[in-house]
Design a protein around this nucleic acid. Structure first.
Lengths: 194, 194
DNA sequence: CGGGTTATTGACTGACCAGTCAATATAAAT
DNA sequence: ATTTATATTGACTGGTCAGTCAATAACCCG
């Protein structure tokens, strides 16, 4: 029963299923068979659309990264001054969506995956650089370059650091607590060098 | 040619080989066969001494964690005031040894492994809590409790955050730069609330 | 020396899995 | 209605790997 135009539907289902499976397994030790099953199709079809397991993982990564990118852009569009732009980036980074257990698990695993697979590393770098330059652009309007540079690294590391800690202890600080702590660090830095 | 007392020698060789293999592969996708070969023995012998691959990984984790723990204790023993104790923890966390590419790769992978294997999670939590309480103990002597608590989280997250970024871009900030940045954050906080 | 213990190997097994393929079904196009 | 293109399946293959085991070797003690 081939209703035409199934491809996008199947791809989306597979990407969602991949993220769910990674979340459930807590690792990338997930078989194409299981992913396909969760997406409601045979393993053969998954290969038909993606060609390989690696391509499935990369598509899932792209999906997560692009959701994140969209959220950052959305938040930046609303912010109307440099300080607000920093807040926008931080809040987007800890948006509810990125905070779902399965999303956190996927991020963490993709970080590791990027060590092995060059395409994955490239993807992650693009987003990492974009984050870095968004922060830098805003902070350079508030601080001397050297200080802006330093605070940019601090904020970027805090984002990653709170993320990884979240993955380890589910029972760590809440989304809003984390945001408040990072904001306080920024304010303290800005207040000290006006 | 069974020279007696081989067990500790073999175990050590296997643990070192495991960390090297993880570093080389950038993932836990490492076979017992390859580990054993690097350690100069048959795969059978690796199983003879450790029983399972999981036990090999856990032993490697324990080794890395205990090196880290020893380094923290060493540094704390020298520090003779609370502020110096914070520095001691930060410097121990970025000691050259922990900074070897293969060690960074192992840490990162063990973080992910802890999502899957309860024993690994337990190990990591013990060390994470020890780190947390070392920082907290020192900072409570310098700040009101609520602020000490907050700064503790910040420093802990910065440590993890800079670590994970290091794993992603080999070309990120250097060991000494990272330490200086974290120290600056601490000083800024202490300076603002004297 | 001979029985007990430790060391060590490599072959073997059972399971699992990524990716392929031939077969089938069905819609649209000519 | 025949062709053509898309959709879909599940069986199959080749390879890999964790863990087991029987066999062998060498030391130690009595």
């Amino acid at each position: 029963m081939p209703k035409l135009g199934m491809e996008p539907v199947r791809r989306k289902a597979l990407i969602d299923a991949t993220i769910s499976e990674i979340g459930a397994a807590g690792s990338l030790d997930v078989t194409v068979g299981r992913i396909a099953k969760r997406a409601g199709m045979s393993s053969g079809l998954a290969h038909h659309y993606f060609g390989s397991k690696e391509q499935i993982f990369l598509a899932a990564m792209r999906h997560i990264l692009s959701l994140y990118g969209a959220e950052v852009r959305r938040a930046l569009a609303i912010a109307n001054n440099p300080r607000a732009r920093v807040t926008a980036v931080v809040e987007a980074s800890f948006h509810r969506h990125n905070f779902d257990p399965e999303t956190v698990a996927a991020w963490l695993n993709f970080y590791v995956y990027a060590q092995t697979v060059p395409d994955a590393q490239r993807l992650l770098r693009v987003y990492s650089r974009r984050l870095h330059s968004n922060l830098m652009f805003a902070l350079r309007q508030l601080l001397p370059d050297a200080e802006a540079d330093q605070l940019t690294r601090v904020v970027a590391s805090l984002i990653d650091g709170f993320y990884i800690r979240r993955a380890l202890h589910k029972k760590s600080a809440s989304r809003t607590e984390i945001i408040a702590i990072i904001e306080a660090v920024v304010d303290r830095h800005l207040g000290a060098t006006p």
